[in-house]
Design a protein around this nucleic acid. Sequence first.
DNA 1: ACAAATACCTGTAAGC
DNA 2: TGCTTACAGGTATTTG
Length: 239
Amino acid sequence: MRRHPPELLAQLQGQILSSVGRHGKYLFLEWSGGQVLVVHLRMSGQLLAARPRDPLAPHTHAVLRFDRAGELRFVDPRTFGELFVSASPQPPPVELEDLGPDALGASPGLFRSALAGRRAPLKAVLVDQRVLAGVGNIYADEICFAARLRPDRPAGGVRPHELRRLSESARSVLEAAIAAGGSTLRDERYRDVLGEAGQYQLEHKVYGRAGEPCAKCGAPVVRVRIGAKSAYFCPRCQS
DNA sequence: ACAAATACCTGTAAGC
DNA sequence: TGCTTACAGGTATTTG
């Protein structure tokens, strides 16, 4: 767990949780004292509601205890997650000033300026949080499939009519994924705050489906490496 | 400025 | 069975 002074949660003692928010993959818990608890789950983190008597899961790194609402526990086996308190009055806090605009509100114009002149693969730009906040490995692949664009294409070569498809696909994929409660993969790492698994993994068209027939055309889905990560796409539907 | 490689951790699955 | 290796949804940092 990065950026987590030991006295982290003591700063919130006695305060009331007033609202929660989000920008990209960062979660914000805002408190009556004006501080914001910023949480990033990274690859293996979970934020789980629990009763005080529930046994502590392994790798529980922080526990928020409420007077009447039980506990909120931060569990993270790989310790990549991030937890810190910011004094910024308005989220997103100053610590996250490099974050790009949230992906849910992205417009074709934003994609145009973000991709222009870039030689990097389209997918590499989509998951760059300074460009667009909120898209990760799974959704980048699914967005590229919905937009019928190869993820390994040089980003700067995407044409205007394709930018429009990309923008529309980003919105529709992310909205559908949120509606389905997110993607809980085989490792079961993602669960919502109540411990419920998501269902969007059932709707993945290409992610994790190397060798399976494309849902649209039947051609085998392929897996390639983009940087250090896997990328999945249909070589017939996507160009 | 951009792009690519690497490091950070633990858990799990695959391969021998 | 037991061991080794590769890989996993992310991002900061280093290197080119």
